[in-house]
Design a protein around this nucleic acid. Structure first.
Lengths: 299, 299
DNA sequence: CCGATCTGGTGCATTCAACGCACCAGTCAG
DNA sequence: CTGACTGGTGCGTTGAATGCACCAGATCGG
């Protein structure tokens, strides 16, 4: 497995932008690292870094090589997972890139349920916005993505989609609490707190507001969905989120979908990198998540 | 690239069925090979050979590992080909599993034409029957397959298909030479020489003969298409082949398609392994072959 | 303009992992 | 039983990878 170490070092060089810095990070001397790189380039048949006066930078060839190595590593993990599976051990590791909305309830439940059945499987959860999530998949840093209204969809295979209406949230004593149906214009008339532009909920809000000749003018704009949930109980403001991140058990917070006449529901998508074969553990977990999404009560 | 050597050795063990034999074949001592295998199994986390009293045999895990290695190697070759391509060198290697019918004219012409444009690309041609060809693709021993009427088609992606009628061949002074249309019953009434059962031409002949209540009863049955072509000029016999392996320039041999009323044409298929990404050199060659097949005159 | 401080690259002594040799235990055919 | 296989192991040796010291070139600050 010597070559795995070589790959780790090459990745370190690419990250540090300098052989010497990467050598320090990796606790070896610069000369050793320099030789390893030189040997690899000689055996591979082409330089993979361009030498600059102040360091090195990945080449076009280097980008290909790095992608190849990542694919190779992912495939090795898959084979090991398959082997563990046929020995009946059911080991493995699942990495998920997901939206913040999945953190409070959905993912903890799903992971805990899966681990009850298969304690040998470990998880890594990376919180990413919808653009970062796809980048995570393509670079093999995550196996699955669970995001709301992803922006770019090349290299993304949808495993399951479930509609999620944008909901308004407010304290139980908010003036809007009594209304039978919630219109967007009513929400915008009150002080509101909204997520940043890069999030899907905000994108849907902006589009819908524009359609009725209005604009979203948040009193607070934030990247934290958690802040939104806590803020609306402190000021009489309206927050916006999707129901999968909300619990009807919590009596300090009311949420109600905005009328479908004003806003179409967005889609929460479970996906993987196009063309990639997932490990046994990952694909079984994906199956479980897809089932759970399908059985989820429509708000 | 030490691990490539390890893979080569593991493959040698699998082929030889014994560590000692594989060591002899690879010009190293059995102890060294034994250690390499032991170390790999330790690092991989599982045995990949089962130890028998008279040698070793690949495990279920081992089959997976071997397949993984082959895919990895093929992917590395693809990356190298891409790198060479973006440097403008256009290097690469193309391996083709093909039917005998492509040997006399089609493949030599195609390879020569491609190599005129890209002298840095080398070729390997493996003559295989239609079942072996698909096995070659799946085990990454060949990149492309060019076969007539392939039998199994799982894991086989068709890049191009071209119909080829079965033709009867005979000497110019054969009694059938004057007939305007050639019926299957006339051919079967004369002494004939036919390819073995495993070939597509024979399959079509058997089916068509059964449909008219006859049987194929060859005076000579052979695996060599070349023998068939030479035999019909020595005995006044009828041979059967597809037009892509025949030349109308050769005046010592006449060929004429058997009437479509008796036999539908078979298909000559150009294909690759399903889901595999081919190297630059290979896919460009495949494009050229597909184009040549499309422009071929229908006999 | 010059020195300090970066960068990647290289000759040389060292060291440790992989190797070959010799050998062991078990199996099986005759 | 014998001889010829098999995979596995202790031990001394060797060579590839490493660390150290150093070089050439580029950049930046004063």
């Amino acid at each position: 497995m010597q070559h795995l170490e070589t790959f780790r070092l090459i990745e370190a060089i690419a990250r540090a932008g300098s052989i010497r810095k990467a050598a320090e990070d990796s606790n070896i001397t610069a000369s050793a690292l320099n030789r390893r790189l030189a040997r690899f380039e000689r055996e591979f048949g082409s330089q993979i870094f361009e030498r600059l006066p102040r360091g090195v930078r990945l080449n076009a060839a280097g980008e290909l090589v790095l992608q190849h190595f990542r694919a190779q590593l992912s495939d090795l993990a898959r084979v090991q997972s398959q082997v563990a599976d046929l020995r009946g051990v059911r080991r493995g590791h699942v990495t998920i890139a997901c939206s913040q909305a999945l953190l409070p309830f959905f993912l903890p439940q799903q992971i805990a349920a899966y681990r009850t059945a298969h304690p040998g499987v470990t998880f890594a959860v990376n919180v990413r916005d919808r653009e970062q999530a796809e980048a995570e998949l393509v670079s093999f840093r995550s196996d699955l993505a669970l995001v709301f209204e992803p922006r770019v969809l090349v290299d993304f295979t949808v495993l399951h989609a479930v509609p999620q209406p944008v909901c308004a949230l407010f304290a139980p004593d908010h003036p809007l609490a009594g209304r039978p149906e919630l219109r967007l214009r009513d929400c915008l008339d009150h002080p509101h707190i909204a997520p940043a532009q890069k999030y899907g909920v905000r994108g849907l809000l902006d589009t819908a507001a524009k359609a009725i000749g209005r604009r979203v003018t948040p009193v607070v704009e934030t990247e934290s969905f958690e802040l939104i949930r806590y803020y609306v109980v402190h000021e009489r403001a309206i927050g916006f989120q999707i129901p999968i991140g909300l619990s009807s058990q919590d009596k300090s917070l009311i949420f109600r979908p905005i009328s479908g006449r004003d806003m179409p529901p967005g889609n929460l998508l479970l996906g993987q990198m196009r063309g990639r074969v997932l490990s046994v553990a990952t694909s079984r977990f994906a199956d479980q998540v897809a089932l759970a999404l399908a059985n989820m009560p429509n708000v």
